[in-house]
Simulated scan of single mutants.
Amino acid sequence: MKDKKGIISTGAVIGLISVLLVKYGNPANMGYCIACFLRDISGALGLHRAAVVQYIRPEIIGLVLGAFLMSFGMKEFRTRGGSSPFLRFVLGFIVMIGALMFLGCPLRMVLRMAGGDANALVGLLGFAGGIGVGILFLNKGFSLKRTYTLTSFEGFVFPSLNLGLLALLLAAPAFIFFSTEGPGSKHAPWLLALISGLIVGALAQRTRLCMVGGIRDLILFKDAYLISGFISIFAAALIGNLLITKSFHLGFSGQPVAHMDGLWNFLGMALAGWGSVLLGGCPLRQLILAGEGNIDSAITAMGMLTGAAFAHNFSLAASANGPAPNGKIAVITGLIILLVVSYFNMEKEAIKMKGDVKLEA
């Protein structure tokens, strides 16, 4: 499925599934949102106590298990890791802070645009700008170093944790929190959400779907393969919103789970885009890679989960009323940290080689 027809078909399926999940209970323009769903899971586990965003989202479980099953069946499951693990945790944390300032991951950004949310266009500009900054450092030799082959057992841990989450969702013990109001209380039936996640996870694994990779490849190589998948998601979700849910509403105001502060929508997604480039993939891609046995991506996902908990414990996340003061400080701090990480992880050999080439020229 590495031809363009395959990824366009995948995008169409994901776009339509996203609309159907909203039709059957998910929050508006939130058929899928990796950042929002990880935030809900962190709340369900008691890592934060924001009562309106607590639920174990089966879509996340399905994404990981779908990628695991597909990669295992196609003999592509490989356990590897060891590439700057703590830095990846920190970068995952920072990406989550940026996404929750915008109120959505790159995938939800596309779904918000398909629902007519003009604020998401501002987010897209920031996202592309952040990716552009990240590319500058990639061109200057940025690297998180090589990965190493690890024992197969370690690769099974992250999918197994997701099976544990599914058990907790179904058993609903007293120590798991579930929202009774707000976005966390709105969800499609668990089996529909799980099956949807399995389908999307399997398709994303086969096509290597990644929003960050799409914009990066378009800028660096003029390669539209990956970005065509997200264009297809947008088109399919737009058609679904117009014909199935009839929920398309064009404009800045009155958009569901969104705010109209353009500057912080821009900066939030710039932070998420820059951090994701350094990580080598968007939040969706990180979950898919974790399902394939990539321990570095599993650590990144744990960083995002922790970032979501911090965002709500310390009032960093935005709301429909706009960004919180603490959140603004966190985004600016995150941008500074990314600058430091980007600079100090440039390969000296790559810099020297480029300097030598300039001298010879």
Rank of each mutant, 00 (worst) to 15 (best):
G281R: 00
G355E: 14
L243D: 04
L47R: 09
A35P: 09
N313S: 10
P256D: 10
I8F: 06
Y55G: 04
E154K: 12
L163G: 15
G62E: 02
W264V: 12
G66E: 03
P189T: 04
F137C: 03
T147Q: 14
L359P: 09
I8R: 11
T300A: 09
I239T: 14
F175M: 11
L111P: 02
S9R: 13
G115A: 02
P159D: 09
K352E: 15
L144F: 06
M269K: 11
I14F: 06
G262Y: 04
L243P: 00
L279N: 10
A202I: 01
H312R: 09
A128F: 06
V52Y: 12
A320E: 14
G130L: 02
A120N: 12
L124A: 07
G355F: 09
L161F: 14
S342V: 12
F156S: 10
G46R: 01
F175R: 08
G62Y: 06
I227V: 13
L198F: 15
D3P: 05
V122E: 00
G43N: 03
A258K: 01
M269Q: 13
G334L: 03
P58W: 09
L165N: 02
G155Y: 01
G116P: 08
G115S: 14
L335R: 00
S160K: 04
R88I: 04
L250C: 06
V157E: 03
I41W: 05
G213L: 01
G46T: 14
I60S: 11
I17G: 03
A44Q: 00
I336H: 02
M304A: 03
L316C: 01
R78I: 15
L103F: 08
C36M: 13
L138V: 13
R80F: 04
L316N: 00
M70P: 02
G15K: 01
G322V: 07
R88Y: 12
I131Y: 05
L169P: 00
S315N: 14
R108L: 03
A270G: 04
S152M: 05
R285S: 08
V357K: 12
L209I: 09
E59Q: 11
C282A: 02
I60M: 15
F68W: 06
S152Q: 13
L16H: 05
A51E: 15
P283A: 02
G46S: 01
I60D: 11
I61Q: 01
A258C: 07
A188Q: 01
L87R: 04
